[in-house]
């Protein structure tokens, strides 16, 4: 009895010992992570308390960058625009992505080919597709307005007017990232149990009813995960907006990331930009945590 206990303890100790030794494998990666991820985080905090210019270098300014930030209306508008853009480019991909996952979960001929075409937008180089979209948005010569007018619809101003630019960019974002939502939800659908469906069919539930009352509740955790990932990516969106509008017309599509880029690398206000980065990061973390809390509460009920 005591011998086996001793052996078990020995084994456990050996396991723990191994666990500690496995850290060696992570050392090179840890060095890289410290150098290119953790060091920049700490340095950003340091920079946000300084002012920097190419001729004089760094000078300590305390919290004044943050004070400037609070009274910067351009930053305030950028935050609101980012939220507007994000709501559109989280909501639309979620709805379309769930619908697409339900379709791609069925068996049909050429399903593999169709799914590959469907995920191409998220794999393609963002700069390349942004260029093609910007040519399609041309108000006179663009193919999109041609299609609209041939369908008898009025032409749109797309990215050329302040009131249509954000929804248009959200449309491109939706086109690009609906596939990711689809893949996550498709992974969820594959893991669903089959019994509730059979029970529902025996009880005479329609296809929509079993979707609404069985599939959707079971998929909810996956949908929340997709929503969180999509929110983070929408808040951070840069390439497509920068290539198509550079924040224009005027500042009508200047989101936080575009604002940040301009402050940092057009005006070289690196101290101020660092403060913006930290506020931006805090906003992303808070929004993600709130959404994950919602998921927790969903579980409790």
């Amino acid at each position: 009895m005591s011998a086996t206990t001793a052996a078990a303890v020995g084994l456990a100790r050996r396991r723990a010992n191994y666990a500690r030794r496995y850290w060696v494998f992570a050392v090179p990666a840890a060095v890289v992570v410290v150098a290119v991820i953790i060091f920049p985080w700490l340095f950003t905090v340091f920079m946000s308390l300084h002012e920097w210019d190419p001729s004089h270098g760094l000078s300590w300014v305390g919290l004044s960058n943050y004070a400037t930030l609070l009274s910067d209306t351009r930053f305030g508008w950028a935050v609101l625009r980012t939220l507007y853009f994000s709501v559109l480019s989280v909501g639309a991909p979620l709805i379309l992505g769930v619908a697409a996952a339900v379709c791609f979960n069925q068996r049909f001929p050429l399903r593999g080919v169709a799914r590959t075409i469907f995920i191409l937008p998220m794999m393609a180089t963002p700069v390349a597709i942004a260029l093609v979209w910007s040519m399609m948005f041309h108000p006179q010569l663009g193919v999109l307005n041609y299609i609209l007018t041939s369908l008898g619809l009025p032409p749109s101003t797309w990215t050329y007017a302040a009131n249509t630019v954000i929804p248009t960019l959200a449309m491109v974002e939706t086109w690009q990232w609906t596939p990711l939502v689809m893949l996550i939800v498709l992974g969820g659908l594959a893991s669903l149990p089959q019994d509730p469906y059979e029970a529902a069919r025996i009880d005479g539930a329609s296809g929509w009813q079993s979707f609404r009352h069985i599939t959707l509740p079971l998929l909810w955790p996956f949908i929340i995960v997709a929503a969180v990932i999509r929110t983070i990516d929408a808040l951070k969106s840069f390439d497509v907006i920068y290539v198509i509008t550079q924040g224009g017309p005027g500042t009508a599509s200047e989101t936080m990331n575009i604002f940040l880029y301009q402050e940092a690398f057009a005006y070289y206000k690196l101290g101020y930009a660092s403060a913006v980065t930290l506020v931006f990061f805090a906003l992303i973390v808070v929004i993600s945590l709130v959404m994950l809390k919602l998921r927790q509460r969903e579980k409790w009920q």
Binding site: V33, F43, T44, M47, L235, K236, F238, A264, T277, F280
Partner: peptide, 12 residues
């Protein structure tokens, strides 16, 4: 690291 905006790595 996945959450952090790319620009916050690039300034430092």
């Amino acid at each position: 690291a996945r959450i952090t905006p790319g620009l916050s790595f690039i300034i430092p």
